[in-house]
């Protein structure tokens, strides 16, 4: 069995739900896919925070569509995780009890409209790097969900950059707003790729099993290389004094993010950890009677239909 699994990986074939797989592969995937799903769902909150205040009708429609997409992506990913023999109820319980993690970036607050631009441009930009890679991940349902997600996500980064461009080209207040958002979101975005390769405990297996195909540091470097020229083009400054082009490696040298802060946020001490999880738990609890009503109603219909026959 084991040999069959290894052989499939070696041939770059997908592992499918009914295939035999080692228990730790299954566990690793449940953890990663559900963490990804939770991130999409929690990720609706910081941006959702600005839906009622989006400054134009167009911006409002775009933002709603985008936040809705995040919800859809969470949904695709939950069903991918469910194919690994865990129910959505269990997955949500893990989130609500704090057992499961989600991306720390969403524990930062969205203070101004420019943050909505920064999230689309930087956070989605970083997420896409990861997600493009994950389209080739070894677990079939996860890979297929990622293909769909990448297709839909393609407008997200553009809308964020568009907001930032408009602000950078706008009034003095708008430009300051855009620079301030970049200053605040730059480091947390770099942290999104995870700890440095040398310190990442899960990376090695993930690469071996072809769940991940590139390392945290590789993806982080690619992100910096791609983003710096985009900032320069619109006259914004990356908040890193050590940022410098390195001709030899054909990439930028840049400072290490503050990993102490990263660990603090992961361990629940980010500015919005409590609010984010609290909002999800509240929505879940407030929705309970709705779900119970739907069950009761369906049951009544079934009984009525049976009585007819």
């Amino acid at each position: 069995m084991d040999a069959n699994f290894e052989a499939k990986l070696a041939r770059n074939e997908n592992i499918e739900p009914k295939d035999w797989m080692p228990d730790i592969y299954r566990k690793h995937l449940i953890r990663q896919v559900s963490q990804h799903a939770h991130s999409e769902i929690i990720g609706m909150l910081p941006e959702g925070n600005w839906i009622t205040r989006a400054p134009s009708l167009r911006a409002k429609m775009v933002l709603i569509a985008k936040v809705q997409d995040e919800g859809g992506h969470g949904l695709y990913l939950y069903t991918a995780a469910e194919s690994l023999n865990i129910s959505r109820e269990e997955l949500l319980e893990q989130l609500h009890t704090g057992k499961a993690k989600y991306s720390s970036i969403f524990n930062y607050p969205t203070l101004t409209w420019a943050d909505i631009g920064a999230i689309g441009w930087l956070v989605d930009g970083a997420a896409i790097m990861n997600q493009v890679m994950l389209q080739r991940t070894s677990y079939g349902p996860y890979a297929r969900a990622m293909v769909r997600i990448c297709k839909e996500e393609s407008f997200h980064q553009r809308q964020g950059y568009e907001i930032t461009c408009k602000l950078a080209a706008g009034t003095k207040e708008q430009k300051e707003m855009a620079q301030d958002a970049l200053n605040r979101f730059w480091w947390p975005t770099l942290m999104m790729f995870g700890p440095p390769d040398a310190a990442s405990s899960n990376s090695e297996n993930a690469i071996k099993w072809k769940i991940k195909r590139e390392s945290n540091d590789q993806l982080r470097q690619r992100f910096v290389n791609q983003t710096v020229p985009q900032a320069e083009l619109i006259g914004l400054t990356i908040p890193d004094k050590n940022l410098e082009w390195n001709e030899a490696k054909k990439g930028y040298d840049f400072s290490d993010p503050d990993w102490k802060e990263f660990n603090n946020v992961i361990h629940g001490n980010g500015p919005c950890n409590r609010e984010r999880l609290g909002a999800r738990v509240k929505a879940h609890e407030n929705g309970r009677w709705v779900r119970e009503a739907a069950i009761a109603y369906a049951e009544k219909r079934k009984q009525k239909a049976a009585a007819y026959q």
Partner: peptide
Amino acid sequence: NAEWCGHGPFLEEDLALTNLSLDLIG
């Protein structure tokens, strides 16, 4: 309706109400 976005009673219905909101703004 958009105030519900991200806070709906379950995920599928969250998306449904958001769709409705989008139509109305349109």
